[in-house]
Simulated scan of single mutants.
Amino acid sequence: MVDQVARTRRKPRADAERNRERLLEAASEVFNLGKAEGSLEAVARQAGVGIGTLYRHFPTREALFEAIYRREVQQLVALAEQLRKDPSSLGAVRRWVHALVGFISVKKGMSAALAVVAQSSSQLAICMVEQMTQALDTLLQRAAAEGEIRDDIGADNILRALVGICYMQDGPDWQSSVLRVVDVFIDGLRRDRR
């Protein structure tokens, strides 16, 4: 019995972890192209693993989408932490927001499935939004303290605006269009230096 408990607590094997990461990366690429209806077989093929490996890690489509969502948010939080050391506080905000547009592009490709995940786990969605808000808020506070941007707008307002901008755009080149608008938006946050 002790042996069985010890086995269940072991860390996953290194190759299993690599396969899981490859699956998440492949699924993000597939969904980033707007192929939410793409088959799980296509995701497995893109990752270079068999469908059985995919199902061992993610028994349902929703489990895969939830894992992608969590991973993308964790990457945004980690990026904010890295960008705290960026010499330009405004540049750090801009880079993080550009990364957020990439996150939203993956999310747009999974929107129908994520709606199901959000309904079944509203706490997950709330937790993820809180993490992104805190990550951006850290960067905004630094930029405001350094006099680079206004201090009268919060991360939650900016996130809502950016999500709205992203979801109003469609078509094959929507990301580059959004990034142009986002740059104008960020420039609008700058303090008037007259």
Rank of each mutant, 00 (worst) to 15 (best):
L23V: 03
A118M: 04
A113Y: 08
E17L: 13
D3W: 03
A135R: 02
L100H: 11
V73S: 10
A6F: 02
Q75H: 09
D152F: 04
V178Y: 03
R191M: 09
T133W: 01
R194K: 09
I158H: 07
A42S: 07
R20I: 09
E72C: 01
G147I: 09
D137L: 06
Q134G: 11
G147K: 02
A161V: 02
G48S: 06
R191C: 13
E146P: 06
I51C: 12
P59G: 13
A16Q: 12
I158Y: 06
L124I: 07
R191N: 12
K107P: 04
R84D: 10
K85H: 09
N157Y: 13
M128E: 12
G91E: 03
E29W: 05
I51M: 11
E81K: 07
D183A: 05
H98A: 12
P172V: 08
R9W: 12
V2S: 13
A44V: 00
H98M: 10
L40E: 12
Q131T: 00
V49R: 03
Q169Y: 11
R190L: 00
R10Q: 15
I51Q: 05
R10V: 03
R84N: 05
L189K: 02
Q75N: 06
I68L: 12
A113N: 10
G102F: 00
V178I: 15
E66M: 10
R18A: 14
R190H: 06
E21R: 13
L159F: 03
A118F: 05
K107L: 10
L139W: 09
V43F: 02
A118I: 04
D192A: 07
